[in-house]
Amino acid sequence: METTLAGHVVENLPQVTATGVIIKAVIILAVLSALAGFGTFIERKVLAFMQRRLGPMHVGPYGLLQIAADGIKLFTKEDIIPQNANKLIFMIAPIITAATAFIALSAVPVFPDFTIPEFIPLLGGTFVPSIASDLNVGLLFVLGMMAAGLYGPLLAGMSQSNKWGIIGAARTAIQFLSYEVVTGLSILAPIMLVGSLSFVDFNDYQAGGIGSWLIWQQPVAFILFLIAGFAETNRTPFDLLEHEAEIVSGYATEYSGMRWGMFFIGEYANMITVAIIASVVFLGGYDAEGALGWLFIMLKIAFFFFLMLWVRASWPHIRPDQLMWLCWKVLMPIAMINIVITALVILI
């Protein structure tokens, strides 16, 4: 028994305090905003490597300081609001994207839990949990929050009184709505197996090593979830929202400076969220490999992130009608059949 500065009694199983949750929230915000910047650098380098180019090379060693240069550019750029746009909605839209992306991250396990060492003044001994807000229905909450994220691009496109923006917004609505169905249905099969919506239960269910990973029992659901995840995070075969060859930049056409940057941060945060869900639900969770579990979950998340870049380098865009065909005539029926088969197997 020991007492932290916040006055809470800490037993053997550390108690989650308000201070710990706030620290966690700050860590998530800081690290992931920075990761979004670093992610662009990695993306450009990986794409360059796959296309036999050099990528950014001029700013700093191997172009590493390109992140700083891009950041300075984004922060100092003029924030232009078009004359005929609905100014309030135009200003709010990027905040919705960034906010929903980070709220979604509050219910998934990000980084291992740890206790701040005693020798640090003020905050020493505070237990920082792995999941900022451990909901019973965490999985549904994350999916719901990502669904709410569609208002960012939607309102952005509709408020800017720009043809490309409107087309981008319409594409947002059809793409996100359609693929939400696939995401939900594909993840329903593992939920039925585990019998819970909590990430902790998913982690515990797969505690028996690689053999007990859900990917072996639900390979179809895994692939469906990945495909739908690409569509929901607006990644390249499915980035119709801002397909630069067709609609300039879609919903983001009129945005500049930090407002555009917020869309960007939101997109990268969503990519990381999808990677975390895929790792925890299908690839064994965060302490599957014992003491080094936190390292392996990072590697799994990094792999999914890399996979998104890899796919971008390898595959062309698809047409909107192909996107709808894929969703409603291929992926959704497969997801339904998968659920029925899973239910039959559970019953028998």
């Binding site: 549904l140 909450f141 999916l143 719901g144 929050m145 669904a147 709410a148 569609l150 208002y151 939607l154 609505a173 996100f176 709505l177 939400e180 939900g184």
Partner: peptide, 11 residues
């Protein structure tokens, strides 16, 4: 959240 915000309002 999922039904009203994600689906109905989006429609």
């Amino acid at each position: 959240l999922v039904v009203y915000v994600g689906a109905i309002m989006a429609l």
